[in-house]
Amino acid sequence: MDDADHNGLSVDKVSMVFTLPGGGSVHALNNVSLDLASGELMSVLGPSGCGKTTLLNIIAGFLAPTEGGVFLNGHQVTGPAAERGMVFQQGALFEWLDVRKNISFGPRMMGKSKKEWGPKVDHLLDIVGLGDFGDKPVYQLSGGMQQRVALARCLANDPDVILMDEPLGALDALTREKMQGLVLKLWKETGKTIVLITHSVEEALFLGERLIVMAPRPGRIHREYRLPFAEQGLTISPREIKASADFVEKREEILSMIWEMEEEIMGRASA
């Protein structure tokens, strides 16, 4: 393993094959490799069925790959752990706890005292703009606010890597744009390594310092980009970036790429 002294996240020749109950098998992932330096933000894009969620579940440690392995700072991933935080689409908050108890869940599970996590949780509440909502039950919050809690809950644990599975997917378009700004701000302020899965080409382009486009059957990496937009987003307004010629050109390029993949799947299915 040449990754032994690698600092960051490394996915090494990962393949995932599911055997179906009726015989036959599905190649969800085939020989996927990628390396993320510490502090990088990578978005993952692809048509449905390309295995991007499977990839994230393998990195998170919820699934063991059929072949290959995932390494974080040189050690192999064998299961979920606090070093790799997750932000889910929606409904993964604990609705029986208030906002503060949700955010402090990780530290509390590790037996830390309120003295240790109290100030940190208050600070996180301010960062995500929920300063006055600490004592509210989470089910009273709007969808956007709930995702802010989910981000803060993940950050409270101070993970090395944050894995985001469509975190903004269930939000309305306007809230989504605002939350993209928040994700960018948190990334810059905390310097975390982030892997973001999304269906939105615009979101992937805007947030991903790096962007991989995956192709289905078998799930594999199709194209990889290095993008300037996330860096620009820290100084220029998001609306301006998304309207720029460079952004629009990339967006159209990737959209037609995914379009063609979908067409091909349809063609294969009907053939």
Partner: peptide, 23 residues
């Protein structure tokens, strides 16, 4: 139980017993 809640708890460092008790 929604599996994402269980996954979230494990990713936040909870043990099996803590997942049982707290989720």
């Amino acid at each position: 139980v929604k599996i994402s809640k269980v996954h979230a708890a494990y990713s936040l460092g909870a043990s099996k017993f803590q997942v049982l008790k707290n989720v």
